[in-house]
């Protein structure tokens, strides 16, 4: 009987203590700069706000144009002066967005372990752990190739996507990790896409990353305004 009481006491009063100290991350914001180099050079600067509970990512772009871009799971909207001037179906959604992965603690495998890909090979290579992922299902219309991922110190370092014919589509490198409230976030992502055999470079940098900023409500609400 004593044992039963003790068990009941533990379950009722002590189990909530397990959740104390376990932080819930739902919001992230950052200054963002994207430098692109292919046949021309382009730069995009602005600020990004993402609340995973609202499932919307807002970009307040300052350059090359003052505009707001809103990414949802299914759509992309472009707003100028609070009016939608362009919209189209999102092909990628937010699932594999880096900040969605960070907030959902899925950065270790880039969300591949809960996707339509399966781990087929793991290999230790010098300071890197290299894993190979292949699509679980073969779709005749939308064929996907394998993905090879490299991790350094349990953090994703590189991601190489292949075409089904074996050629490389793109390489992504995640570097300059910063620890923000216990979350390891890469502040520089270099992407090299191989389109028409000529590499296209895209270097994205994140600055002043803030987690769970609940003071600045307007930037996370559905009524979005330009932020200063």
């Amino acid at each position: 009987m004593k044992f039963l009481r003790l068990t009941l006491f533990s379950v009722i009063f002590l189990s909530p203590l397990l959740y104390i100290g376990q932080k819930v991350f739902s919001r992230i914001e950052s200054e963002i700069t994207i430098k692109e180099i292919d046949s021309t050079s382009r730069i995009t600067t602005g600020k990004m706000y993402y609340d995973k509970n609202l499932a919307s990512m807002y970009y307040s772009i300052k350059f090359p144009n003052r505009e707001v871009l809103i990414y949802t799971d299914s759509m992309v909207y472009r707003l100028i002066d609070d009016k939608v001037v362009e919209n189209y179906k999102s092909t990628t959604g937010l699932k594999f967005n880096i900040f969605n992965l960070v907030l959902n603690s899925q950065m270790e495998y880039y969300g591949l372990n809960s996707s339509s890909y399966e781990l087929v090979k793991t290999k230790n290579n010098q300071d890197q752990i290299i894993t190979t992922w292949e699509p679980k299902f073969k779709n005749k219309k939308y064929r996907s190739g394998k993905i090879i991922m490299s991790q350094k110190n349990k953090l994703i370092f590189g991601l190489v996507s292949f075409h089904p014919d074996g050629s490389i589509i793109s390489k992504q490198f995640f570097e300059d990790y910063t620890n923000i409230d216990g979350l390891m976030i890469p502040s520089k992502i270099t992407q090299i896409a191989f389109i028409n055999d000529k590499p296209e470079y895209k270097i994205t940098t994140y600055k002043n990353i803030k987690i769970n900023n609940f003071d600045d409500q307007k930037n996370y609400s559905s009524e979005f305004y330009f932020s200063d």
């Binding site: 602005g46 970009y59 772009i61 144009n65 871009l69 992309v76 189209y88």
Partner: peptide
């Protein structure tokens, strides 16, 4: 090199 300022934000390019 010359820099063309007339382009769309890369986040909107589809």
């Amino acid at each position: 090199s010359s820099f063309d300022t007339n382009y769309k934000s890369s986040l909107m390019v589809r």
